[in-house]
């Protein structure tokens, strides 16, 4: 792998981070009283939209996995549809997991679901962009020695750090500090966002430091 690849990865990741900042600073121009904590649900929607858009844009521009075979229009349409279904499935799956973890079943359904959406945005959307709707490829990337490129390596790191961030975000909830961000699911969404950003920052650096050890088998 070349250093230019790592640089490209760094720039794309910085762009992703930038999209999160945009989602915080652009809406106030259009909406009164917008703030991340008070109008949290709106921010979740905008953040999810922005990150998805940037990911799609990057996918179209950078094309990290160049598939050689030309495909027909119908093939493309089914592919896009499949991606949609996968995304929705992952949202519902995460929602179920949250409820199993102890999130309220009936109250705050919308909040829980939007948390699932934002976490899917941080995890499933990059997977879909990079690997396509191919569950086997996903499973391969998330196993030991399964990655084949720095893009996949970065994907692995950001996904895991998003999940870990969301998990850590649950810890302040029982504390009696009575802060507005301790309300479900705000601390978790913030944790997931911080985790995602941290993953984006760390992954190019980590790849850079370990570039000697990393040898990808290409197929």
């Amino acid at each position: 792998m070349k250093d230019t690849d790592i640089k490209r990865l760094l720039y794309t990741n910085l762009l992703c981070i930038f999209s999160i900042f945009l989602s915080i600073f652009i809406p106030p121009f259009f909406l009164d009283n917008f703030s991340v904590l008070e109008t949290h649900l709106i921010w979740l929607c905008t953040c999810s939209t922005f990150v998805t858009a940037v990911n799609l844009l990057l996918y179209l521009v950078v094309k990290p996995n160049v598939s050689s075979k030309r495909s027909s229009l119908s093939h493309k349409v089914t592919r896009v549809l499949k991606c949609w279904i996968y995304f929705l499935m992952s949202c519902f799956f995460l929602h179920v997991i949250f409820v199993l973890y102890g999130a309220p079943l009936i109250e705050l359904v919308l909040e829980t679901f939007l948390f699932a959406v934002i976490l899917s945005t941080f995890t499933t959307v990059p997977c879909l962009c990079l690997l396509g709707p191919n569950l086997k490829a996903w499973l391969r990337v998330f196993s030991r020695n399964g990655v084949t490129s720095i893009w996949e390596n970065s994907l692995q790191i950001t996904t895991i750090s998003s999940f870990v961030g969301a998990w850590l975000g649950a810890f302040p909830i029982p504390l009696d500090w009575e802060r507005p961000w301790q309300v479900w699911p705000i601390s978790c969404t913030l944790g997931a966002t911080f985790g995602y950003v941290a993953g984006l920052v760390i992954s190019p650096l980590w790849i850079y430091w370990n570039r000697k050890q990393l040898t990808y088998k290409t197929n």
């Binding site: 086997k136 499973l139 391969r140 020695n145 399964g146 084949t148 197929n219």
Partner: peptide, 12 residues
């Protein structure tokens, strides 16, 4: 067979 054999290096 799902994880292509080449992926599993000797350390696995």
């Amino acid at each position: 067979k799902l994880l292509t054999v080449s992926r599993l290096s000797s350390s696995a």
